[in-house]
Design a protein around this nucleic acid. Sequence first.
DNA 1: CTTACACTGTGAACAGTGTTCACAATTCAA
DNA 2: TTGAATTGTGAACACTGTTCACAGTGTAAG
Lengths: 209, 209
Amino acid sequence: MKTATRTPRERRQERTRQDILLAAIDIIAEEGAEQLSLREIARRIDYSPAALYRHFDSKEAIVDAVCNEATRRLGDSLTVVPETLPPVEYLVELGMAYLRFANDHPQHFRFIATWRVPMPEDITREQMEQAADNPADPFSLLYRAIQRGIDVGLLRVKPNYATLEMALSMWALAHGMAVLQTQRLGKIPMDYARANRQAFQDFIKGMGD
Amino acid sequence: MKTATRTPRERRQERTRQDILLAAIDIIAEEGAEQLSLREIARRIDYSPAALYRHFDSKEAIVDAVCNEATRRLGDSLTVVPETLPPVEYLVELGMAYLRFANDHPQHFRFIATWRVPMPEDITREQMEQAADNPADPFSLLYRAIQRGIDVGLLRVKPNYATLEMALSMWALAHGMAVLQTQRLGKIPMDYARANRQAFQDFIKGMGD
DNA sequence: CTTACACTGTGAACAGTGTTCACAATTCAA
DNA sequence: TTGAATTGTGAACACTGTTCACAGTGTAAG
């Protein structure tokens, strides 16, 4: 599989575009999102601030691209969970992977959580219901796992509460725990790994009857 | 009960301090948090920008105060849930009230959720375990309700997963759902009220065995 | 090879931001 | 009435995102 860009010009373009994004990501990781400025990005990659506008329409566009990249990385760290696990275990480990990412990259997680929930852009019911063929997408992973749980009889569909609703609730739980724990609540002395696991297990259990 | 401030001077001080905060809250509600600027606040209350520094050390201090005020309001809309309800129903309604606030005041909720999770500042285990006497605090409401559920036998304590952990998980679920639904996910056509209720019920159910 | 032309990068400028500070005006107590 | 403390201000500073005319470069056509 080759890159779609042909000419040297386009390759150079694509490269500095990536440089801009990587610099932005570094700044966020090192100094926090509020320190992200066009001038700092430009300084790091030896350009003038104005030059960035040859690659992005605005700072917001850069922020958006960074969000997408960070979301992609979060998605990657979810795909490492072996999909061969039994449904319940798989769901629990998905949630734990989500929390691990938030814990390992707090700045990035805070960043994307501030601007948007790290989820695929447009979720419609039809789109989701045919998502079994989209293996890479992180929300699809969750959706399919829920569906599997239903098929096996571990989860029970209720009125107005089917696969999509369960998947969203599960995502909400993971996201909420991640937000809570990447903020000042890390101070409370408790065994987070165990507690988190228990919370996921309980929730799944509760969806089963 | 009289105000603690005595002299006319102190009363005037307190009043313009409130004016500043109210202006800030209005701006956030009307134009969004990113439009909040000291100059706009000053314009609205007929002061120069520099004058604000007689009442607050920095913009961050104003933001902090606004956060506290918004958190207080969120807490108020949780206290309307009658504490006489049976434990499970009470917990569900508490969560629904949280979501209702987020839905009714999306800008304010987004604002506090961006800067901090809307929770009391310092939560320690000891502090929580003697919180039965702090009726007003919203997290204490949740904590006590969980405790009641345990006492009645509806919730089961597990290793490393007692009252505090359950309360935090429940808060995380509500917060996560609120964040998800105040973002672009409101587009998905589904019966949110029913789905949310079901999610809370399932979660509580799952903590019961 | 030379002539066009599109592309790339820049410095300077603009309007906006949070913040500071010397200074004037006011309020208040002695 | 005097004196000090409080209150408010305009001007300035350093920063931000953004625009734009301009110079230099790369590329493709004649």
